[in-house]
Design a binder for these strands. Structure first.
Lengths: 293, 293
DNA sequence: TCGACCCATAACCTGTGGGCATGGTGGAAC
DNA sequence: GTTCCACCATGCCCACAGGTTATGGGTCGA
């Protein structure tokens, strides 16, 4: 019935990472022969060769590559299950909310107030995370709810409610050639330098550029947060297209001009689709109520 | 390092399903004391009580409920990883395509021809599955690619390419009061009886009704496939709103009228987002090429 | 109050996963 | 070509995790 034990999967992933039985064994704090045996055991049970190995070289077979890809995910799922269970057992756990600094469309204080009024309210821990790993926080149980931006963040495996929809604005230095305009279209921004978010693989989906073609893609400045970006914009090094609320209040030396044909940005509150704790439902309800009030 | 073994998770799920150690042990083909010990072992390792149990009654704690929910998913992930590995190791495996009968927008033969022309073409096994478990086939490795309808099917964890976008039509019996119209709006269908798809939980998202309010929701006829639905429509028992190609050629006694404000239906080819085998990429490329030709 | 049901505990046994020592093999170095 | 070394495989042994059977002891229903 059991096809593959968690431990065996961990062993396999270690070897696949290192492509070296000795180092992998080291990392796992077991002896190398035990690891060799474990891998062979798995191979024979699955009826598939996972590594091509000589005494000199170790490489993944196609089957190994598939197992690595899917196995990593499976390990994460087991880890997430454990974290969620541990947490659900902790009756007086706090609610953990993760958001990007400034990424609350000025709704945070209202949400917290609305939640605090509820009879079942807990204390709320607020975690800030600039990169897109806010979604990872949810998936692996490090946080209970997150504020995310659609279509920027990837909602796979998450449930969500919409809090706020807003247009996007071009963020320009005061002296910019377009700074005087009342509104812009994406075509007006052709040739401008746009940022690249740190840690985000740019998949060419065109969200970041709003549909602009790949410009001087190689040398787009990499930014980690909005503050840093504002700084670079003030210096005239680049411009950006952002949800309006991310740049409010508008800093000195910066001008915001609505971009009429950029797809609107939606702020959502998200949680794991398998997480049905009242704790979460209650906070979500409060957040939705606060945002529509 | 290891938090929870696959086997322990299976034991836990069995007990959570049965809420009875004896029956669960039976189902697992082990003795009851072994199961009791295993569960206590897990509880102490996780530091969480999973069951409230007296000698008379067994019930899940909140922590147990969380572990059940996430643990089932984790077990599926492990199983899927194994299936994918086994399959990737089989060099001359066929490509398995799953679709709903008639759910190919008449593109299937073109796709297969385009794929057969490729140098790396394999034989293609075609699986038919009426319900929404086509996505499950992908997720657990029973199929390599699927034809799905957006926004009907849930694409979580899947990658996809669009093949075809088409409007939706109201499918009416010939004598229906609206059968003579050139086009309709959703509002015109107010009060009509619409089907419920077998095995699909109706989440009230309004896809099926295209935004109509919950009508006589309780007694909407349950249908399993399009043929059956056409039959019921011919009998005047209900009507439906479907992608146009699903009812082509139009059967006798049936009239199709475009619904102008129903969101369009998109046929996509989908595969597991973790599956990067050339086998899959090649078929997808052929399918996309064939559908745009 | 008795009996039946069902989970926990006790005592014992066994398979297997892991440790150590060593063998075998292919590359690189000279 | 020979040597040497890096590295994976094999053999053998042991410990213990995880299984079994027998039994204990609550708790509910009759």
């Amino acid at each position: 019935m059991v096809e593959l034990e968690t431990r065996e999967l961990e062993y396999f992933v270690a070897v696949a990472d290192e492509l070296h039985f000795g180092r992998a064994a080291d990392r796992l704090s077991i002896a190398q022969p035990a690891l060799s045996k474990a891998i062979r055991r798995v191979e024979s049970r699955l009826g598939v060769r996972l590594f091509d190995r000589s005494s000199r070289h170790v490489a993944l077979t196609p089957a190994g590559a598939a197992l690595l890809e899917h196995g990593r995910h499976a390990l994460n799922a087991v880890g997430a299950a454990v974290r969620h269970a541990r947490r659900a057992g902790d009756a007086d756990a706090r609610l953990r909310l993760v958001l990007k600094p400034g990424g609350d469309a000025h709704l945070l204080s209202g949400m917290l107030a609305a939640y605090a009024d509820r009879p079942d309210a807990r204390r709320v821990d607020i975690l800030f995370s600039g990169a897109t790993d806010r979604v990872d926080h949810l998936r692996d149980g490090r946080a209970d709810v997150a504020l995310l931006y659609v279509p920027f963040d990837d909602l796979d495996g998450l449930a969500h409610e919409t809090l706020h929809v807003e247009g996007r604005v071009a963020v320009l230095p005061a002296g910019h050639r377009l700074a005087g305009r009342d509104e812009l279209r994406l075509a007006d921004l052709e040739g401008e330098t746009l940022p690249r978010w740190k840690g985000v693989r740019d998949d060419g989906s065109g969200w970041e550029t709003g549909g602009l073609g790949p410009d001087a893609d190689a040398r787009r400045p990499e930014v980690a947060d909005v503050t840093q970006m504002i700084h670079l914009i003030t210096l005239g090094r680049m411009i950006a297209v952002l949800p309006r609320s991310l740049v409010e209040p508008v800093p000195a030396g910066i001008v915001c001009v609505p971009v009429t044909d950029a797809s609107p940005s939606t702020l959502v509150i998200a949680w794991s689709e398998r997480d049905r704790r009242p704790l979460v439902a209650s906070f979500v309800a409060a957040a939705v109520a606060a945002s529509t009030a």
